[in-house]
């Protein structure tokens, strides 16, 4: 990086936005079901252009801490399920995860979501966070998480080594057909070198 370019900071999420073909159900789910405040709604004739951009609404729900989740409804367009109800692990991989502050808050959210008639998972404990998962009326995957232990410098250093092993092993799109075991062997070498050999010096 050039020394002449500063490193600006991000300050969390402003909003994320998704298309919807179920605007009524979307409002009923987010505003009336989850209880997120509807904070802003834009309506527009196209995008002021003449190239066939549909007329639309763009509406925002408060997701806490200055963040919003927003939707576009493009009037008169056909639903495109490949953009909404994406199936399988790839569908799950694209999700929105909101923050809860405690396990109690997470359980309160679980009860609230169930009360809307929406399926929600039990609490799932991961390495450093605990989550519930559910799906909105459009098919979008949602998660609410709480941090179960704060990340440390050790976690950051370990992530550096894992990602170094990942980039060396797979590059982009894994041209040599390597496996996760290949990556773990390289990670083991990095840990041996950076944690154990360094400690012995």
């Amino acid at each position: 990086m050039s020394n002449l370019v500063s490193t600006p900071q991000l300050h969390g999420v402003h909003h994320t936005a998704f298309p919807t073909w179920k605007p009524k159900s979307t409002v009923e789910f987010y505003r009336d079901g989850l209880g997120l405040k509807l904070v802003h709604a834009i309506t527009a004739r196209g995008w002021g252009r003449t190239d066939g951009h549909p007329d639309f609404l763009h509406f925002f729900f408060d997701a806490g801490n200055g963040a919003a989740i927003a939707f576009f409804y493009y009037i008169g367009t056909e639903p495109r399920p490949e953009f909404t109800a994406m199936k399988g692990y790839l569908g799950v991989s694209r999700h929105t995860a909101w923050a809860a502050h405690s396990q109690e808050e997470l359980l309160d959210w679980r009860a609230r979501i169930k009360a809307t008639g929406t399926k929600v998972t039990p609490l799932v404990e991961h390495e450093t966070l605990e989550s519930i998962y559910f799906i909105d009326p459009n098919g979008y995957n949602l998660e609410i998480s709480r941090t179960s232990r704060p990340l440390t410098e050790q976690d950051h250093r370990d992530a550096d080594m894992t990602i170094e092993a990942m980039m060396s092993t797979f590059g982009d799109n894994n041209p040599d057909g390597r496996t996760i075991d290949d990556m773990w062997r390289l990670k083991g070498q990095l840990v041996a070198q950076n944690a154990f050999a360094a400690a012995a010096e």
């Binding site: 092993a165 773990w184 062997r185 083991g188 840990v191």
Partner: peptide
């Protein structure tokens, strides 16, 4: 569990 790596064969 194996995030920190190994030597050998799983």
């Amino acid at each position: 569990l194996t995030v920190a790596g190994f030597d050998g064969a799983i």
